[in-house]
């Protein structure tokens, strides 16, 4: 599985430009599903049929944060905007690679003090060109952060762990899972980082009975970090809330019960910012009972995001258990 994760995280596919990652995922999941579709926005919908069963949509977003060129100046410096939540303090000195193969480093305009962190519009990408003509970049070209997979033994680091690790968990679960009580719609969604857009249209198209998102969540276990109770290595997290949704209490209950019965470690997650595909599913059509299975991840949206391999293994175990133990939701019958 480590190889799969390495391939996934090292594929560059920022929001709106998910072509390459979609091909990788399609190639890896094809043997384990009955049907594959791509919708108008580019979501990859993979179905495992089961007549008469409850329909569950499991969504892991396949896009990553990135940058888009807005202007190439006469000296060849490239101005840019973020695609998704890119923070200035992660950018300075960072390396990026455009989808056309051109690489560059991020530089900044002079600041008043060395401590000042300038905003993104004071930054530019230097692609090593002498002028606009040789820069080989035009308005609208898209870049991803350039950072290879790093194996620290039990812990793994890379850009785009958010949410390729969710993608890996979903692929791996379907690979291992022989049977399920559900009809499964595995959705690899697009444009999550710019506002859960792909999952919005995918959920409408799928019209599931239940929704589960697989995504990363932040942790509070680093020195003077955010106040949050989730830690790396203590098991996958069951979302109670984030700023985009209150997870359905029946789904929370189902997830906790299942984890406890199967003796899988888990953590209760309250994230005071952020949102996931779970929100889009919950609000879709006449409403969908929805929850989120989160993989704890340090330094989310930095070019080096860290996950714990045991958390990943346990997320796969828990997801497999969930797919074999339906929740009690009388009104869905």
């Amino acid at each position: 599985m480590k190889e799969l994760i390495k391939t996934l995280v090292e594929t560059n596919s920022p929001s709106g430009y998910e072509n390459s990652i979609r091909q990788v995922i399609r190639h890896n999941i094809e043997p384990y599903v009955d049907e594959i579709k791509v919708d108008a926005l580019g979501n990859l919908l993979c179905v495992r049929h089961k007549e008469g069963a409850l329909k569950i949509m499991i969504s892991a977003h396949m896009d990553e944060i990135g940058l888009m060129a807005t202007h190439v100046d006469q000296n060849g410096f490239v101005r840019f905007i973020p695609l998704g939540g890119v923070y200035p303090h992660h950018c300075i000195g960072g390396r990026v690679r455009f989808l056309n193969g051109v690489s560059g480093v991020i530089g900044v305009e002079r600041t008043t003090t060395p401590q000042e962190i300038p905003s993104l519009d004071k930054m530019f990408i230097d692609v090593g060109a002498a002028n606009a003509q040789t820069a080989q970049i035009k308005i609208g070209d898209v870049a991803a952060f350039d950072r290879p997979f790093l194996d620290l033994g039990k812990r793994w680091v890379s850009k785009a762990m958010d949410d390729r690790i969710g993608v890996a968990v979903l692929i791996e679960t379907l690979k291992q899972l022989q049977n399920s009580v559900f009809e499964i719609y595995a959705v690899f969604s697009v444009q999550e980082e710019v506002g859960v857009r792909g999952a919005t249209t995918a959920a409408f198209g799928v019209a599931p009975d239940l929704g589960l998102a697989l995504d990363v969540t932040a942790t509070g276990d680093t020195p003077k970090g955010i106040k949050m109770e989730v830690e790396l290595g203590k098991g996958p997290a069951i979302k109670i809330r984030d700023s985009g949704m209150l997870a359905d209490p029946r789904i929370i209950h189902w997830m906790i019960q299942t984890a406890e019965q199967a003796s899988i470690p888990y953590q209760r997650e309250i994230l005071e910012f952020g949102g996931t595909d779970g929100r889009a599913m919950q609000l879709s059509r006449s409403g969908v009972p929805a929850g989120v299975l989160s993989i704890p991840c340090r330094y989310v949206h930095a070019p080096s995001e860290m996950v714990d391999s045991e958390d990943v293994e346990n997320a796969i175990l828990l997801l497999s258990e969930l797919l074999n133990n339906p929740p009690k939701l009388e009104f869905l019958a």
């Binding site: 919708d39 108008a40 926005l41 979501n43 857009r197 792909g198 919005t200 249209t201 995918a202 409408f204 198209g205």
Partner: peptide, 8 residues
């Protein structure tokens, strides 16, 4: 573009 199943 976000209506129904998505509109290019």
């Amino acid at each position: 573009h976000l209506q129904r199943s998505g509109i290019p």
